[in-house]
Design a protein around this nucleic acid. Sequence first.
DNA 1: CGATATCGTAACTAAATAAGTTACATGAAG
DNA 2: CTTCATGTAACTTATTTAGTTACGATATCG
Lengths: 149, 149
Amino acid sequence: MKRNSRLSSTLHILVHMAEKPEHALTSGQLATFIHTNPVVVRRTIAGLRDAGIVTSSRGHGGGWLLGRAPENISLAEISAALGETLLPFGTEQESPGCLVEQAVIAVLDDFRVAAEKLLAEKLSRITLADLTADFRRRYDLIGVSSHAV
Amino acid sequence: MKRNSRLSSTLHILVHMAEKPEHALTSGQLATFIHTNPVVVRRTIAGLRDAGIVTSSRGHGGGWLLGRAPENISLAEISAALGETLLPFGTEQESPGCLVEQAVIAVLDDFRVAAEKLLAEKLSRITLADLTADFRRRYDLIGVSSHAV
DNA sequence: CGATATCGTAACTAAATAAGTTACATGAAG
DNA sequence: CTTCATGTAACTTATTTAGTTACGATATCG
């Protein structure tokens, strides 16, 4: 699992889970999907559990399940549950009292707030169901083409 | 200079430069504004020079000047010249051949491209002149209030 | 011309961050 | 009561970026 790919890795995991509803997947299984190890998976998606996006159960036969239907899980929620920041730049004060810095931060922060709202809106319109649909489209396409060949 | 504050630090520097047109500022002077050292400044704003946003000259009396009027320098250009990414998440393939991953990346990348375009448009409408205007407003306000007191 | 000031850049060091790993306690199922 | 899972803390490793040192190139001044 590369740096800065927590969102895509998590989505990868969630699509696999959506493809096997009712069938709990262990962190070990999830880990192999994204080429990492179980502890990293548990740590990464712990926030999703707190947000009700997934559930986990211990012991024999335990593992991870989606907490609700893929149609009701938006990328905005997932991103937020991961604790990801949509915008990468900081707007913290470093020279208290410098009016130039205050002006810079004020303008930049206005932009940041507006931009984050905008992005969150866009992301809230994409659901896990959209991802699984896209996957199925690709899957069917491969099926057809290999049949043709 | 903190991590992830390259954009705000650079804007800070540029506003100071805009306040002293015709008067070249050395990397040492710029460095004190953002509490770092001259080499970091030179390295950070090297891209701005390549983009024509600033000019530099060597030797006695040398230093840095704005390359054009603040009205014609947008935050979009500055951000791009710094090599900053507007969105922090990666969409690189890690498991070639995995259809789930391909679907995830396809959807995420569509979002990323659209979002980056949107943010770039927003940033292109904010110019360095807007920042200096905001600074002057704050400056005048302080002047008035200290006069009143 | 020589002294001084400044950028340009390479090479190294230090600090911060995030992933990967190990270890073990907790809890559930057979 | 053994086995299989998660939960989590603690540690190690890898990567990135800022900071630093050093020095060459260049421009100005006297």
